[in-house]
Design a protein around this nucleic acid. Sequence first.
DNA 1: ATGGTTGCCGTACACGTGTGCAATAAGGAG
DNA 2: CTCCTTATTGCACACGTGTACGGCAACCAT
Lengths: 365, 365
Amino acid sequence: MAERDGGKPAGVAHGSVKRLPALAARQPSIKDIARLAHVSHPTVSRALQNSPLVNAETAAKIRKIAEEQGYRASAVARGLVTRRTRTIALLVTMLDDPFSSAVACGVAETAADRGYAVLLANAHADPERERRAIEELAERRVDGIVVTSSRVGALYLLLLKALDVPIVLVNDQYPGELVHAVTIANQEGMRAATEHLIELGHRRIAYLGDRNGYQSDAARRAGYKAALARAGIGFAPELAVEGDGRPDAEMEAVHALLRLNTPPTAVCCYNDMTALGAMRAIRARGLRVPQDVSVTGFDDLFFAAYLAPALTTVRQPMRQMGQMAMENLFKLMSGQDSAAQMKIEAELIVRGSTAKAPKREEDQA
Amino acid sequence: MAERDGGKPAGVAHGSVKRLPALAARQPSIKDIARLAHVSHPTVSRALQNSPLVNAETAAKIRKIAEEQGYRASAVARGLVTRRTRTIALLVTMLDDPFSSAVACGVAETAADRGYAVLLANAHADPERERRAIEELAERRVDGIVVTSSRVGALYLLLLKALDVPIVLVNDQYPGELVHAVTIANQEGMRAATEHLIELGHRRIAYLGDRNGYQSDAARRAGYKAALARAGIGFAPELAVEGDGRPDAEMEAVHALLRLNTPPTAVCCYNDMTALGAMRAIRARGLRVPQDVSVTGFDDLFFAAYLAPALTTVRQPMRQMGQMAMENLFKLMSGQDSAAQMKIEAELIVRGSTAKAPKREEDQA
DNA sequence: ATGGTTGCCGTACACGTGTGCAATAAGGAG
DNA sequence: CTCCTTATTGCACACGTGTACGGCAACCAT
């Protein structure tokens, strides 16, 4: 442009000519800036870090030149020397699961606010992919890991521990090993949903679980049982069934429930996705929700309020949980110790998918 | 542990003692492996790359030792020297939008298959965050970028172009600038949906758009108009309204439609999320879907089939689109040129949310 | 004038990996 | 036995950044 060279007219021209032609192709490096500013590259490094060790106007000049040249420090070079990549990994089973993506949203948001990048590791529920994904994380030298996959938590945590970086699990604990985790009050939440049904007069209440839910499924199931026990309702094993996350399996399980001699008048579902399948199966048999069968979910995904009838469910502040997990991870990465378990309260949201139990001749609690 | 030093008893001990204590803390480096294998570090590097330049049994020994030590090559060091990070960025407006996360799924999957990592850049629909996210990508030296955000495409593409890496847009073109993109047949798809309604006897058909849909909203709106024109139905400006992605705004727009003197008997929605809001608003006025008002969506998100009534919509193979975008990006990154525009066919899925137009006295096409 | 600060900057490393080139040994041909 | 190939390995760099340390000038106090 129109800027002048400053001083030093002699010798400089010849000495720098041999590198200048290549400058256009590469991204400018710290050395290019140093040459233009007539200083050494450490001075540039310090100036851009606002170090007090460099003269104020020298620093200003350097920053100006860096700006003009569109200089962007290489995070990879910096990562090599500082041994910190300012990158965290987000390990997810299925990213297109609304729960996972909501948590991911919270994680990504807080990470970005602190200048951390998020490496997305999608395991796709495929064991081979999961293993490879973890190997990748090792090579990438991430500073920390957030896991939103109960399956990975349960099966691969030992592999992850070998990476020797802080890990925070979301909605999953690892039995037997002390690991940092952010969880919802699974048991209390499902208990509240079940008690809500009991108050509405239901006695035959089914539980539709998810065999891939691992720890969280176990906790919710326990909450369901606790509510029954407290109300003096016996636990009927034939009413506690499970799917595997696929809609087909869930619907089949619900059909089986409704073929029983005394079918349930209400179904507590492991989560909202499961409830979606359950409601469809119920309707497929010509029954109505909630007049014939009440349904509850878990999560309060975005669509829950928009269904007809709107879904009664247990709300998880998913995005906030992602934020908390990330903040927890920051603490651990900076060397502070932090609470091993953070438990978040669950809130029952009553909507239209639950109603008073229908009158039947069999009814006699 | 219990491993022996091998040979070289003299001199070695003293010379290496000063480094060994730190070995336990650090991840093993290529030099550590080299020392244990009694070779130079370049030999280790070549052995682990299966280079034919290294003796077969030497290579085997080296690989064995590397395995035992749990050695993982540092991708950051490699990235520094090769000037390729094997990392792509996935730029998303809102990750918790089901469309985005489905595309992200496809992108992540194919990237992982080729050994590429995915850096998640969530713009959160916040201009300041978007700018910062792009700066981050520059520093991280990503090899390529996939954008699933019509807004970023429209506003920040110039910034992105400055990074000088290949870019592929999903469902968004950048008007005026030639950019690689994978898009659905927006216009044809919406036209098919509208024609479907016309065949059912509808004449007063509304279009509920999204002002943040930019290019894809414009194309779908054009498809809607084209269908009307072909059927000889005049375009009524008061029937073409728009929301902004938030359910509140959409519902308000639909309420306004239904307050018209001759309200529409059908609503074509920009996408499934919009349709969710529209159906709720319709029901809030005591009207039934589809008996009183038919509704169509766009995307065929997972919940569309599970609604009551199930949603008639235009299917986008979102995950496949993510895969195609990624494969396209691979081509570009390897220097090959590739088709600038890849257009995918859209498929109309007819379900229960559309029905024959109700008989009315005003009806006379 | 001398010694000691202080402020600022450059020199010389280091981080962990990849690669061109030279060096060495082994083997074959003459 | 000598020369030329070929196979294998090590040496010396480079990549772009951060930082401990020393040097130098200016300033102050003696």
